[in-house]
């Protein structure tokens, strides 16, 4: 099923929209890097792969067809690059048993890694954007409550807030995060998702 409305892609394809391109880079570069890292590449190699993928994107984005979702298309590109790299590496390393042992036994499949990193990248992107929407204490309360799981009484002592302020802060940030995530996904890939 085609899930991409191409709104951001169209902006990027216009080749005239610096902010569209910046957003594109900001969102997908870390995703590509994280994916490459999870597939076992070194930081420098992952950065290289992300760079190469973005170059491919710049070159091919105008020929991108809507038959495929953008998520699948991008995965295909980065997967190809990573596989190529790993194959080169294997040849260069003349794969030995000690190398095999390093790989965890229950390593998720590339597709699973991609799905997970895709979701997290979009999530962290929204999380980062919240910074400009709330007062610092609100975000701090949210972070300690949700992301670090501290007891409410402890957070109250650390931040000098009452427990209900923390709940309110957490609720507001969660609500905004949910909205931001939905908006981002709609904006990028259309409402059909």
């Amino acid at each position: 099923m085609n899930t991409t409305r191409l709104s951001l892609l169209e902006r990027v394809r216009d080749l005239d929209d610096a902010s569209g391109w910046a957003q594109f880079d900001k969102l997908y570069r870390p995703l590509l890097m994280l994916y490459a890292r999870r597939r076992g590449l070194s930081p420098a190699d992952a950065e290289e792969i992300a760079q190469e993928c973005l170059e491919v994107l710049v070159a091919k984005i105008q020929g991108f067809e809507r038959r495929l979702s953008f998520r699948a298309w991008l995965h295909r590109i980065v997967d190809h690059k990573v596989n190529q790299h790993l194959a080169r590496q294997r040849r260069a390393l003349s794969l030995g048993p000690e190398w095999l042992e390093e790989a965890p036994a229950t390593e998720p499949s590339p597709a699973q890694i991609w799905e997970q990193q895709w979701d997290r990248t979009h999530l962290f992107y929204c999380l980062a954007a919240l910074r400009s929407d709330f007062a610092p204490h609100t975000l701090q309360a949210f972070e300690l409550y949700v992301l670090q799981g501290l007891p409410v009484a402890e957070i109250a002592r650390l931040l000098g807030m009452t427990p209900n302020q923390i709940y309110v802060a957490k609720s507001r940030v969660m609500r905004r995060l949910r909205e931001a995530y939905r908006r981002l996904i709609d904006k990028l890939y259309g409402a059909s998702r």
């Binding site: 980062a128 400009s132 610092p136 609100t138 975000l139 701090q140 949210f142 302020q165 802060a169």
Partner: peptide, 18 residues
């Protein structure tokens, strides 16, 4: 890495940052 810790003390609680 702490997402928002460095923002403590720059403004009062609640309300928008701007």
């Amino acid at each position: 890495p702490v997402l928002f810790a460095d923002t403590v003390g720059t403004a009062g609680p609640f309300g928008t940052l701007t």
